[in-house]
C-alpha cells in the first residue's frame, strides 16, 4: 500500500530520531548478552569427547579459553595449595587432553575460564579416572572459581545421573551459598528448565523423564558411554547455567555432564517378575512333604 502524503512527511521529519533510536537498540542488543543462553548451542561449555581410564579429551564451545584447570581429589586435602591442582594447554586443536597425575585417580574437576573486560565465564565438568583415590568431598568443598555449581553429591563411580531422578547441586558465590538465584537446566535435546536455589543455595533438579536417543548435532556431539562400561547406555548431555553480578563484574558458570535413561529403559520389569516366579515354581516341589515309605511286612 503506497504511503500517504502526511505519513511521508512524518517519516521525513522524524527519520533522524528514529534512526538514532534504531541505532541505540542495535547497540544494546550487541553489547549486552541475554540473561541466559536461550538454547543448548549458545551455552559456554566444556565437555568430554572421549577417553579411557588413563585420559580424557575435552572440547570447549562458546568460549575463548584462557586457561584450563584441573583439580584432583587431593586438592585441599593437605595444606599445600598446589597439591592436586594444575593447568593444561587450552589451545590444542584436537582437544584438551587431561591425564591424572602420579596415578591419582578418582573424580577430577576440570574447568575452562574466560575473562573479558567485566565478564568472567567458567565452564566446568567432572571426569572419573579409575585408580584408587581419596573421596572428592574435600576437593568439591574447596573454592575453584567465584561462581560455582557443585554437585551434592556426584553420582557414585558405578552410577550416573538418570532420567526421572532428582539430584542436588549447590550454587555458591565466593564460598557463600547463593540463595533464591536462578539456575537454568539445558539438555542437548533442547529441554530447558528454570530452577531456583533455596535458602541454603541448593538447587534440586529432576532430570526429564522424556528420553529419546541422542544424535550428534550442532557442535557438542552426543556423549558416549564411558569406555569399559558394560551397559553401553545412550547418554544425553546436560548443562546447568547460573549468572551473578557483583562489584561491577558479570559472572557466568556452567556445569555439564550427561544423564542416562531411567533404569527401566529397554527393560521389562514384568518379564523379570515372571522369571522370578518361574524360579519359585521350580523350587515348589521341595516344599512337598515326602510320602512316608510303608514299612515292609
Amino acid at each position: 500500500m503506497p504511503l500517504s502524503y502526511s505519513s511521508t512527511v512524518v517519516l521525513q521529519t522524524r527519520l533522524p530520531a528514529m534512526r538514532r533510536l534504531l541505532l541505540w537498540m542495535v547497540l544494546l542488543l550487541t553489547c549486552s548478552r541475554p540473561l541466559h543462553a536461550s538454547s543448548w548451542n549458545e551455552l559456554p561449555l566444556l565437555f568430554g569427547q572421549g577417553g579411557n581410564r588413563q585420559q580424557i579429551t575435552l572440547q570447549t564451545r562458546q568460549l575463548d579459553v584462557e586457561r584450563v584447570e584441573i583439580f584432583s581429589p587431593l586438592y585441599g586435602v593437605d595444606q599445600n595449595p598446589t597439591a592436586g591442582h594444575w593447568q593444561v594447554n587450552p589451545t590444542v586443536p584436537s582437544g584438551i587432553t587431561v591425564q591424572p597425575k602420579a596415578k591419582q585417580g578418582g573424580f577430577h574437576w576440570i574447568q575452562a575460564r574466560q575473562e573479558r573486560g567485566s565478564s568472567v565465564i567458567v565452564a566446568s565438568t567432572v571426569h572419573y579416572f579409575s585408580e584408587p583415590a581419596p573421596s572428592p568431598r574435600t576437593m568439591l568443598q574447596q573454592p575453584k572459581a567465584e561462581l560455582e555449581i557443585i554437585p551434592m553429591p556426584l553420582p557414585r563411580e558405578f552410577a550416573r545421573y538418570r532420567a526421572g531422578e532428582e539430584w542436588s547441586f549447590l550454587l555458591r558465590f565466593r564460598q557463600q551459598p547463593l540463595t533464591n538465584a536462578i539456575v537454568h537446566f539445558h539438555s542437548e535435546q533442547e529441554i530447558q528448565k528454570r530452577l531456583s536455589s533455596d535458602g541454603n543455595g541448593m538447587v534440586r533438579i529432576r532430570f526429564p523423564e522424556k528420553f529419546s536417543l541422542p544424535e550428534s548435532h550442532n557442535g557438542a556431539p552426543s556423549a558416549k558411554p564411558t569406555s569399559g562400561r558394560h551397559d553401553r547406555l545412550p547418554l544425553i548431555r546436560f548443562a546447568l547455567l547460573a549468572e551473578h553480578v557483583a562489584d561491577g563484574r558479570e559472572y557466568q558458570t556452567t556445569f555439564s555432564q550427561s544423564y542416562a535413561p531411567d533404569p527401566y529403559f529397554d527393560k521389562s520389569l514384568a518379564s523379570g517378575a515372571g522369571f522370578a516366579l518361574l524360579g519359585m515354581l521350580c523350587a515348589t516341589p521341595l516344599l512337598r512333604r515326602p510320602k512316608p515309605v510303608p514299612a515292609r511286612p
Partner: peptide
Amino acid sequence: NLLFGFTLVAAL
C-alpha cells in the same frame, strides 16, 4: 531372576 526365585522358595 530364576536363581533369585528358586533361592527364595528353596531356602524355606
